[in-house]
Design a protein around this nucleic acid. Structure first.
Length: 936
RNA sequence: GCCCAAGUGGCGGAAUAGGUAGACGCACAGGACUUAAAAUCCUGCGGGUGUAAUAACCCGUGCCGGUUCAAGUCCGGCCUUGGGCACCA
């Protein structure tokens, strides 16, 4: 019988006997294995799907044999844009296309032998399912978690349509290439930001992979800081900024409001109105992506008004700029150019003063220090690309020019004087004054500790003119011009090398240090100063501690046809009114045209007899909401429905959910670990808070698989011609071979390229297992010579399947097969175990061979048990090292003492060569691993 | 720019708690079987020195340092590739 027939035979057997049906309430321990349900696209199943479904299938099959009541369900996430695009082009109802695609997907899954419980299948597009999605939306609404807000959408003027972020990539409409603009639209929102903290802490109740947790944490984006309120000078207005660095408040030299900030129009002075309006208009034309992409150069305008810095009453100008986002924090910032990169860039461009309030500390602090102020001057000769240094040799190595600032002398004058005195150069151009540095050092010639505040300067040499030098007796150095490389290598002094770094990389100093120019914060470090400033702000009622999250509320409206209708009605008298729960589902009507309307409404808006309805509250005429829900909605709770898929009274009964508890293993793509998972967790936490699910987190472990790439190591795509169709592989090699290959191809969590040669190797492996049957003798017991390797392999396969190390599980089975091949003959008992261990990966051929032995089906048999004692080798070979280098090996038994092992090691011929005439200073014996003899 | 992951033979990849690097498979080469091919089986397979052949030795897990009796594995600093986020104050 050929393999396609065999596979079909067993698939029919499984279906007919409902072998994989999960039992709600079964006494067997529940085990819920979930793979992300696919979007049934027209392209059919991808070999990437096969990889993750096989992996979870293998786990499911093993767990069933181990006595678990396994739930391994499958369904369809079938709402979404592609089906709608297809419908627009071909004038068929999306549900027809979806029906066809689902049939194809299901057929493909069946030929691959996945052990899904098909009795629990559903699609998010089934009215019986989306009824509950709508019902849950109503719960959000009733608990004040859903609201309408005006939000910008991506809008194409040419196509007159709303675009998703994906379709608006690069600020250009994907269809027609014209620029995408932002258009304000009233949209449904879910108050997800209320859950930011809970979504963060909830991670502790999960077993997600560390990188998955990290993805969630980054997306939530918690940051702790402060709100500070600034009065607008000469008005009664004030505004509040959010900052994580309230310790730098003394360095604030201007403020920036987002162009959309509500205060802008009120406080702009008349002479600036025109410029402000123009700037605001320019910003509105850009979408968010464009605004950030064109961010190389800062833009903005001064609006004529000034803010009063609450700590020192300084009057500082207010600007608007699109580098401040209206949607984050308060939409307003205080700008501290000395200590923030963006503010620095802006201040440079607009010539705004920069006040340093934090200086970096170098050297080692001592108690008995003498304080002084000094300079370090870097002089650059552009013509020769060299820097002026003094080589003090053993007295201090290579340094720049330094010196102490005299009384009544400015730092700049000091720098110029020192350069002239020590090198003579006096035709210099000041390039920049560098941030001050707080430096501790010990002066040998004076035998004293100093703490200096050093101001750095960068000069350019105008020409080589040198005046007369005036050196003191103890100043013995050579004047040397050297290049950047040598400076980086040879200037060792912390102060001087730091100064050089500042000279080379002008910009804000964002690190920690000591506060200066900051009144009551002077001398404190960042953390101390933040705490002290928070205290000050609260005492003076102009600020407080504040936490912000990057995560925003969930925009829940889509101006699309193919999604769940939002069950809300707008009544001229009553406002927004929810549908009555008993009137759900609100069905999607059948229409002929799926194009969005000219004004960006969903196609539903055109169906007047659907739109026009009566108000559920007052009975008067009203209109339905025509936006639909996003694709993420249906997938936010589908794992709950699988627990109780046929329930018509509830989305799932509490009883069923309490039985299954949590999804034990949830597998999906890395691309979904941030958003989908976050939405699903938010949805569940909300349901938990209103008492509808038993746990705050319903997913325990989340794992993600790597992609299957084309043989050229690139993502599979039609245009690259590297797509592998699983159907073709099943036809030619069989589902079992494909399954084994995809598990063997590499680390499950890592991407792996397709390789047909390697697939053929797996085919050979299966053929060898079939041929092994010819050596089977009619005995049930396990061969003594194979006992050890069999027990080892059971253990290996069992642990590997539970820890996603599928590739090494296959490898272990290949090793066992090799052993059995080299044995003269094997027993039925040996063979049966091999078949059972391989069954989760290759369920068809193993069942067939097993049946030929006369046994009952493997899927109804228990998983073999291993005996730990029998996995231990009777003798093993370990290496012997001399001074860490391998010099020989010895064979030992597990019960040998360390002394015996050592004697054996020393007697090894090759080891002896190294030991003669040497003194052994140490010996290390690691049981079962290695011996190392250290000699002198 | 920031965060994360990875870098091991010709290739995919092993090495689970710092302990013989290269399991297993592919490709390749030689041989057996065959009229021949396919299939199958056997042998070899990181680089080098060396030997008639063994033996033995040296180098070797992206690069440079460090810790250790011992480093693919731990620490510090780089480089490269992939992924995510990106003016988040």
């Amino acid at each position: 019988m050929d393999f396609n027939k065999i596979e079909q035979k067993w698939q029919e057997y499984w279906t007919k006997n409902k072998v994989f049906a999960a039992q709600n309430g079964s006494k067997n321990p529940p085990y819920y294995i979930l793979v992300e349900f696919p979007y049934p696209s027209g392209k059919g199943l991808h070999v990437g799907h096969v990889r993750s479904y096989t992996a979870q299938d293998a786990l499911a099959r093993m767990k069933r044999m181990q006595g678990y009541n396994v739930l391994y369900p499958m369904g369809w996430d079938a709402f979404g844009a592609p089906a709608e695009e297809y419908a627009i082009k071909n004038h068929v109802h999306p549900k027809e296309a979806v029906k066809r695609n689902i049939a194809t997907f299901k057929k493909q899954m069946e030929t691959l032998g996945f052990s899904f419980d098909w009795d629990r299948e559903f699609s998010t597009t089934d009215p019986e399912y989306y009824k509950w999605t709508q019902w849950q939306f109503l719960q959000f609404y009733k608990h004040g978690m859903a609201y309408k807000a005006t939000m910008p959408v991506n809008w194409c003027e040419n196509c007159k349509t709303v675009l998703s972020n994906e379709d608006a990539a690069g600020g250009v409409c994907e269809r027609c290439g014209s620029p995408v603009v932002q258009k304000e639209k009233s949209q449904w929102m879910l108050r997800m930001s209320d859950y930011a903290e809970d979504l963060l802490t909830g991670l502790q109740d999960t077993n997600f992979a560390e990188k998955v947790k990290l993805g969630q944490i980054n997306w939530i984006g918690k940051s702790t800081g402060a709100h500070v309120t600034f009065k607008v000078a000469d008005t009664d207005y004030d505004f509040t900024v959010f900052t994580t660095r309230c310790d730098t408040l003394f360095g604030a030299t201007y403020c920036v409001l987002a162009p959309e900030h509500e205060l802008v129009d009120q406080i702009t002075t008349p002479d600036k109105k025109e410029a402000v309006a123009a700037y605001k208009k320019a910003c509105a034309l850009k979408n968010e992506r464009e605004r950030t992409e064109l961010s190389k150069e800062k833009t903005g305008v001064f609006i004529g008004a000034y803010a009063i810095n609450p700590v020192n009453n300084a009057k500082i100008p207010i600007y608007i700029s699109d580098y401040v986002l209206a949607t984050y924090g308060t939409g307003a910032i205080m700008a501290v150019p000395a200590h923030d990169e963006r503010d620095y860039e802006f201040a440079q461009k607009f010539n705004i003063p920069i006040i340093q309030v934090l200086e970096e500390e170098t050297g080692e602090k001592k108690s008995n220090e003498t304080k002084k102020n000094s300079i370090v001057a870097v002089v650059y000769d552009e013509k020769n690309d060299k820097y002026l240094t003094l080589n003090w040799h053993e007295l201090g190595g290579r340094l720049f020019i330094g010196g102490t600032i005299g009384e009544n002398e400015t730092a700049l004058a000091c720098a110029q004087r020192e350069i002239q005195e020590e090198t003579g150069y006096d035709h210099l151009e000041l390039v920049s004054e560098l941030p001050k540095i707080n430096h501790h050092y010990y002066a040998y010639n004076k035998d004293k500790y100093f703490n200096i505040e050093s101001t750095g300067f960068l000069f350019k040499l105008k020409d080589n003119h040198q005046a007369k030098m005036s050196l003191e007796d103890d100043e013995k150095f050579d004047i040397e011009w050297v290049d950047k490389k040598r400076i980086e290598k040879e200037v060792q002094d912390a102060l001087h090398s730091k100064t050089f770094t500042y000279a080379l990389n002008p910009g804000a100093m964002v690190g920690d240090g000591l506060h200066i120019n900051s009144d009551f914060l002077n001398g404190l470090n960042k953390e101390e100063a933040i705490n002290k400033m928070l205290e000050w702000l609260e005492n003076n009622h102009c600020g407080s501690k504040q936490v912000n999250y990057k995560m925003r509320d969930w925009i829940f409206s889509r101006q699309r046809f193919w999604g769940e209708p939002i069950p809300m009605v707008n009544c001229p008298k009553c406002g927004w009114v929810p549908l009555k729960e008993e009137d759900l589902p609100l069905l999607l009507p059948d229409v002929a045209e799926y194009e969005p309307t000219d004004n960006g409404e969903s196609p539903l808006a055109k169906i007047t007899d659907w739109v026009n309805t009566t108000c559920p509250k007052c009975g008067g005429p009203a209109k339905r909401e025509t936006d639909t829900m996003p694709n993420w909605a249906g997938s936010s709770w589908y794992f709950l429905r699988f627990m109780d898929p046929h329930n018509s009274d509830a989305f799932a009964s509490m009883e069923a959910m309490k039985y299954w508890q949590k999804v034990d293993w949830y597998n999906g793509g890395m691309e979904h670990t941030a958003r989908h998972l976050l939405y699903a967790r938010f949805w569940v936490q909300f349901l938990y808070n209103i008492g509808l699910v038993p746990n705050k987190e319903m997913i325990w472990t989340r794992v993600s698989h790597g992609m299957v790439l084309g043989s050229n190591n690139e993502k599979m795509s039609k245009s690259k011609g590297n797509v592998i169709n699983p159907d073709d592989i099943v036809q030619e090699y069989g589902a079992d071979v494909l399954r084994i290959y995809e598990m063997f191809m590499g680390d499950y969590e890592q991407d792996a390229p397709w390789n047909t040669d390697s697939l053929r190797g797996c085919k050979r492996f299966v053929d060898r297992i079939i041929r092994l049957k010819d050596k089977v003798k009619d005995e049930e017991n396990i061969s003594a010579s194979l006992e050890n390797i069999i027990h080892k392999t059971i253990k290996k396969v069992e642990t590997d399947l539970q820890t996603m190390r599928y590739n090494t599980a296959v490898s272990a089975l290949m090793i066992l097969t090799n052993e059995m091949e080299s044995a003269k003959e094997i027993t039925k008992g040996d063979y049966k175990i091999l078949l059972t261990l391989l069954n989760p990966l290759a369920p068809h051929i193993t069942e067939e061979l097993n049946e030929q032995l006369g046994y009952e089906p493997i899927c109804l048999s228990p998983w073999p048990k291993y005996d730990e004692a029998k996995t231990v080798d009777e003798e093993i070979t370990i290496g012997v090292q001399v001074n860490g280098k391998l010099r020989g090996d010895i064979t030992i038994t597990p019960n040998m003492s360390n002394d015996e092992i050592l004697t054996l090691a020393k007697n090894n011929d090759n080891v002896q060569k190294y030991l003669t005439d040497k003194e052994i200073i140490k010996t290390i014996v690691i049981p079962q691993k290695i011996v190392n003899i250290v000699i002198k």
